[in-house]
């Protein structure tokens, strides 16, 4: 579900405000996608996420990539233009989470997993996947 923020706010403005990053600094070299440890299974590659924001394409909020990003900061370290894509991904996640659409339902995690998973896994997952 794509949240309607406001008719007169562009996605670019919203993401820049939340992330503090300059989206047009990106010149699409693709280094973020090349180094992303999860990039190969993403439906929209990391550099394409930026591309869609530049194009004010709100459908980027429907892609799986923003939830697959695990905030490992690899892209942030390697970006030659100092665009921290980790923060951009977080901004996109928050646009969804702040409309109260949780990505993980705690009640749906099976009992066996809950008993086995360490607290650090559960806390970090809920911090990233729930509002």
């Amino acid at each position: 579900m794509i949240p309607k923020i406001s008719e007169d706010t562009t996605l670019l403005e919203k993401v820049e405000e939340l992330s503090g990053e300059k989206i047009y600094s990106c010149h699409k070299c693709g280094k973020c996608s090349a180094g992303c440890p999860i990039g190969v299974i993403m439906d929209v590659r990391p550099h394409q996420v930026i591309e869609r924001i530049q194009a004010d394409d709100w459908s980027v909020l429907e892609c799986k990539s923003i939830w697959l990003c695990a905030s490992c900061f690899q892209c942030a370290v390697r970006c030659p233009k100092d665009v921290d894509l980790t923060k951009v991904m977080e901004a996109l996640r928050l646009l969804i989470l702040r409309t109260n659409v949780d990505q993980v339902q705690i009640s749906e995690i099976n009992k066996e997993d809950l008993e086995e998973l360490p607290p650090v896994a559960l806390v970090s997952n809920f911090r990233k996947s729930t509002g």
């Binding site: 440890p37 999860i38 990505q103 993980v104 997993d113 896994a121 997952n125």
Partner: peptide, 20 residues
């Protein structure tokens, strides 16, 4: 040695963590 292990996806994307 510095590749992400998949981190908290171990809760909801177990297969990603297994692959990593």
């Amino acid at each position: 040695k510095l590749e992400c292990c998949g981190s908290y996806h171990t809760v909801d994307y177990k297969e990603v963590v297994c692959e990593k």
